[in-house]
């Protein structure tokens, strides 16, 4: 229903961010994303994920390089309300006296005049967003009264109401049951099909191939970026996580009695593990042939 004036793109061009205390959180990081993308941002704690988010939101200015949103400088893009942010659950004060509806309405503030008085369209957009995430019946609840998954959906609804085109999600799956996780993924895919761009910081390695078409691996700099099928490999992940990741490999001999040489790798960051079952030797090198054509 909304006409999108801006083709959402994100370009991180060779940025280096150094804090006032002299700590360099990210250096020489570059990657580029197009409209209609869900991109996973993967890295250990302290790898610069939140610094990257803060640079994209204009909280901190890189000392070198630049972030460009839809071809504009960050501050210009923020004025147009195209960036929205879905916070990590632990960053929200759940005792704050606001109703579900109030939080979603905050997404409309950027579209209102300076007194922030909602008009009919704002109210309709809020109702629509709540409907979309299935939270209509909870609209009058204080936010602390919700379950983990419901809490996430409120903030997703807020970015839908905001009509954000570039959406940053910080750990959207922590504290969420499997059913809600799937529902959120479906929602994100839907939003991708509407042409939005989503950058998802997540430790949930196992679900990344299910819904993220792109992946950026981060460890103080961008180690690899591109299509998930190309980037999300055990080798790259090992490089990203170093020794932090739990990595189990069951060799072919442990798994089979026949001469099948495939091995089973389980890689986990203490959330849903990534399970890689080696390719059957009989088949072509890439088991997922449709992805092959894109590459």
């Amino acid at each position: 229903m909304a006409d999108y004036k801006f083709n959402p793109t994100l370009k991180v061009d060779d940025i280096t961010v150094t804090y006032n205390n002299g700590h360099t959180a990210i250096h020489d990081a570059s990657f580029e994303l197009e409209a209609g993308t869900i991109c996973a941002l993967v890295g250990v704690n302290g790898s610069g994920k939140s610094t990257l988010f803060k640079s994209i939101m204009g909280f901190i200015k890189p000392i070198k390089g630049a972030v460009t949103l839809s071809g504009m400088a960050v501050n210009a893009a923020l004025k147009l309300n195209i960036v929205s942010y879905v916070p990590q659950a632990e960053d929200v004060d759940w005792n704050f006296p606001v109703l579900v509806e109030d939080v979603v309405m905050m997404g409309r503030y950027g579209h209102m005049n300076f007194l922030r008085i909602p008009n009919k369209k704002d109210k309709a957009m809020v109702a629509e967003a709540l409907e979309k995430v299935g939270m209509t019946e909870f609209s009058q609840r204080q936010i602390g009264e919700l379950s983990g998954g419901q809490k996430k959906r409120v903030f997703l609804a807020r970015s839908i109401a905001q009509e954000g085109q570039i959406i940053l999600l910080d750990e959207p799956f922590t504290g969420v049951d499997v059913k809600t996780e799937l529902a959120i993924m479906e929602l994100l895919k839907e939003m991708r099909d509407e042409g939005r761009l989503m950058l998802v910081a997540t430790h949930n390695l196992g679900s990344i191939p299910d819904f993220c078409d792109h992946t950026v691996l981060l460890n103080r700099t961008v180690l690899a970026a591109g299509a998930t099928a190309d980037v999300f490999t055990p080798k790259n992940l090992e490089k990203t996580f170093g020794g932090v990741l739990r990595h189990f490999t069951l060799g072919g001999d442990d798994l089979h009695d026949d001469d099948d040489a495939r091995s089973l790798s389980v890689i986990t960051d203490d959330e849903r593990p990534l399970v890689i079952y080696g390719k059957e030797t009989k088949k072509s090198k890439h088991a997922t042939s449709d992805k092959d054509e894109e590459a």
Partner: peptide, 22 residues
């Protein structure tokens, strides 16, 4: 009277406040 909502958003979710240009 003029700024109470903006201050509320700032104190509730500073990142969001920032992204909507506050």
């Amino acid at each position: 009277i003029f700024t109470w909502k903006d201050i509320m958003v700032t104190f509730f979710d500073e990142n969001h406040a920032r992204t909507i240009g506050i």
